[in-house]
Amino acid sequence: MPAFDTSAEALARIHPANPLQHALAIRDADIPRMVTEALALDRARLVFMPVVAAAGSRRTAFHEGLIRLLDEEGRMIPAGSFMGAVEETGMARDIDAIALRLGLHMLRSNPHMRLAINMSARSIGDGTFRRTLEEGMRQTPRIGERLILEISENSAMLMPEVVIRFMAEFRPHGITFALDDFGAGLTAFKYLRDFLFDMVKIDTIFIRGIHTSPDNQVVTEALLSVAHQFGMFAVAEGVETIEEAAFLQDLGVDCLQGYLFGVPTATPSDRNG
């Protein structure tokens, strides 16, 4: 487990003058303890963000379920605040398994919903994660047809052969596989043919301000061309303005996701036009 410097000197360097921020830094410095307590006390929740069709009425195509942990005060803590600190520990595998369990429960409760859940390639060999997935497939026939598993580009490239076998094993259940953060990682294009991902999510860094950025336009068009050449559906992440959305629609992106269409909420909401 990584060591965290929680000394007064270290925390003072983070927030030397603001007492509230200093107190929050003390709380946040021991991230593993916070994560352990939240998991042990069942303080994990999903929030839901819509992904909409780029063309037509911008109807909701599916939702992404994002894991949140609650601190002792009941405040929601985004995954970005803790996943980096625990990614290489068993706690990250527990988080993936809990996110999957919560996602499967949501799908059972909402038979017309499609839902994407994030996972790390490291969780493929985790017993709890696999049992959760296998039991979900057994308990609810065809639920896999509404489940999307997102694996980040960097994570997939850690163990490409393992990911390929995992996808081949569970694709007969109807599960859709998405390559997240496409373009920001280290994917060798030769692996795309072997991976056979159904979907890519083009990373936010190429989407932000794309209508005024020639560099982002060139990169995104190239990534979109690669995705479509390999028969993959393409989602643009991090869309925040009407101008970005219009440019991406003209470029031929299939779906859009971002604050322009909805922030993460505790209850999924549909856009019907």
Rank of each mutant, 00 (worst) to 15 (best):
F189W: 11
L196N: 13
Y191A: 05
H173A: 15
I202L: 00
F177C: 07
D181S: 06
I175R: 06
I202R: 07
I164R: 14
R165Q: 13
D180A: 08
G183L: 01
F177E: 07
I175G: 08
G185E: 03
L196Y: 11
L179I: 09
A184D: 00
I205R: 15
R165V: 10
Y191R: 03
L186Y: 14
L186M: 14
K201L: 02
L192M: 07
L192T: 01
G183N: 01
P172V: 09
F189P: 10
A184G: 06
T176N: 07
T176M: 12
R165N: 13
F177P: 07
L186F: 14
G183W: 03
F197D: 02
A184L: 03
M167C: 03
L196T: 13
P172S: 09
E169W: 12
A168E: 15
R171I: 08
H173Y: 14
G174S: 09
D181R: 12
F166S: 08
F206H: 04
R165Y: 06
D203L: 08
A184Y: 02
L196E: 15
D203V: 09
T176G: 05
F170A: 02
L179R: 09
I202W: 04
R193Y: 09
F195P: 01
D198S: 04
R193V: 11
D181C: 07
D203E: 10
F197M: 00
M167H: 02
K201R: 05
R171D: 00
F166L: 08
F182D: 01
A178Y: 02
A184M: 05
D181P: 10
L179M: 13
V200R: 03
A168W: 08
Y191K: 05
Y191M: 06
G183M: 02
Y191L: 05
P172F: 12
I164G: 10
L192E: 00
M199E: 13
F166W: 09
Y191C: 00
F189T: 15
A184E: 02
M167G: 04
T187M: 06
D180P: 10
R171L: 04
T204P: 06
T176C: 12
M167T: 06
T204F: 12
G174E: 08
M199P: 05
L196Q: 15
F177N: 04
G185R: 03
F206C: 05
V200E: 01
